[in-house]
Structures are given as C-alpha cells and as structure tokens.
Amino acid sequence: MIKAILIFNNHGKPRLIRFYQYFPEDMQQQIIRETFHLVSKRDDNVCNFLEGGSLIGGSDYKLIYRHYATLYFVFCVDSSESELGILDLIQVMIYFLVYLLFQVFVETLDKCFENVCELDLIFHMDKVHYILQEVVMGGMVLETNMNEIVAQVELQNRMEKSEGGLSAAPARAVSAVKNMNLPEIPRNINIGDINIKVPSLSPF
C-alpha cells in the first residue's frame, strides 16, 4: 500500500503532499523533512530506492523516488509494493502532470510549452490532486485505462471553461500533445477518441 506521496523541490519546500494513512500534522511535517533529508543527499546515479526509515511503519517501509529537474517525487510505500512498478507509476504521474499543465498552458500561452514551471503545480494543485485520485485511490495503485484519465482531465477543463465563460477550443493543445512523441510515455493515448471499448475478458 502507498502510505504517502510527497513532492518537494530541491530546497525541501513541499509542492504536493498526500497522505493515505493518518498522521498528525506535526508528524506529517517531520516526515516531509526527514524524507527530504534522506533523499536530497543521494546522488543522481545511485538507485531510486531507500529502505528502513523510522518514521512511517518502521522496517516495513521503503521510499521510492525520482528526481526531475527541481522536483523530487517521493512515494512512501510498504513492503508489498513492487519497487519498479511504483517507479513507473511516478513516470505515469509526471506524464499526466505535464499533460494537465500543458493543457492549461496552451490556451494562455502560445507555444510556450517550456514555461510549465514548478510553481504551476501549486497553481493547479486541486487539479493535480484529482488526477492523483484516479491513479492512486486510497493508497492503492489502480491499473486504469489511460484514456479514461485523459477524458477526466478534459472534462474537468471543459467544466471550468464553461463556468468561466471561456470558449477557447483546445484543439491546439490536443494536436500538441499528440505530437509530443515522448519515448517513455504511453503512446496509445488517443485524445480525440475517448470511447472506451468494452474489454473482451471472457467469463470464467
């Protein structure tokens, strides 16, 4: 089970925090500090796993993290989670984050895709949380249809827009995302067509 997801920057400033197990407020802050302390002193060329902290759950507890640019994405999980699985989940999460921020940005900034910044995570904190809810629910990794999440993000943006009276068409965003051509990102995201096919799992 995932116990917590922490995103903080190189200086240990929290950017997104989600706990799936209850800890008192001061304990949460302590966990963030200690995790940052553990993670930040590791080089980039060592492995992405850390074990045996004392804060969450004692020895049955590991940290799986990735460091991108200025941000650390840290998952605190118990021993039942697959290390590499979580590592890829972080990748998926980052993909969705970029996708989300990208969607927001294409409307406001023409082609200024590079301007997605660390702070945008906070600007759209609520949206990031919604995406997270779809990928990790109550500490469980959900194998989901990627299209579905993309659809969710779209829906969410559409609602915001209709509320805000904006009528900008996200067409450019869609085409930009389609052409992103990210080698480590699922290729089969099909934004124009969000029909979810009925799976052919035969009954048993």
Partner: peptide, 27 residues
C-alpha cells in the same frame, strides 16, 4: 524520461529566477 518533459522541467529554475519576465507566469 522523455526529452520534452526533461526540457520542460529543467527550464523551471530559470523561470523561478525571473518570474516577472515570463509572460505566462506573470499573467
């Protein structure tokens, strides 16, 4: 990680330093 995302995220520090000069963030 993809080049694009890498590029995206590595662009962040420079952004942090000059928040005002960037039209998007400023807006």
């Amino acid at each position: 990680m993809s080049d694009v995302v890498e590029k995206t995220l590595t662009a962040l520090p420079s952004l942090l330093l000059s928040v005002d000069s960037q039209p998007g963030s400023a807006k």
